[in-house]
């Protein structure tokens, strides 16, 4: 039986894709970064909204997520995405709930997903997000 060239090409490409992605994982590329200090959060927040100047910052324990608020009360939610950070400027569509040891913030974008943040000051952020 003769296999069509397109099928062969697809199969070969699939093998190469899995091999390259597997290799990237095996040699440890893409190590997880952490939001180590306020400056890192400020930088990430300014990427979400150019010129965003964080006045108050809270980093979740572990450094995988953070919240930042500017002078005018706007809030940016930041999460680790692979070995980069991504974020959303929260709107009135954002929802927040307090759990035993964490704040769960849903920015309203299903694909971005709700973020669980263990913070030292969850009450402040819950109030601030609810006021949006």
């Amino acid at each position: 039986m003769e296999i069509p060239p397109l099928i062969l090409q697809i199969f070969g490409s699939l093998v190469a894709i899995l091999a390259l992605s597997g290799l990237a994982m095996a040699i440890g590329l893409g190590r997880k970064p952490v939001l180590g200090d306020e400056e890192a959060v400020r930088y990430a927040a300014s990427e979400v909204d150019d010129g965003f100047e964080a006045e108050r910052v809270s980093i979740a324990r572990g450094g995988a997520a953070a919240l930042a608020r500017d002078e005018s009360g706007r809030i940016v939610l930041i999460k680790r995405h692979g070995n980069r950070f991504a974020g959303r400027l929260l709107t009135g569509a954002a929802r927040v709930r307090e759990e035993v040891d964490a704040l769960v913030v849903d920015c309203g974008d299903a694909r971005f997903g709700p973020q669980q943040l263990s913070l030292d000051d969850p009450g402040y952020w819950a109030d601030a997000i609810n006021r949006l």
Binding site: S13, L14, I17, S21, G22, A24, G28, L29, G30, R31
Partner: peptide
């Protein structure tokens, strides 16, 4: 530059190509 690649991102990019 170990941060230049991320395995999941690479998988998505190459899957786009296929």
């Amino acid at each position: 530059s170990p941060a230049a690649y991320e395995p999941k991102d690479t998988l998505v990019s190459l899957s786009f190509g296929l």
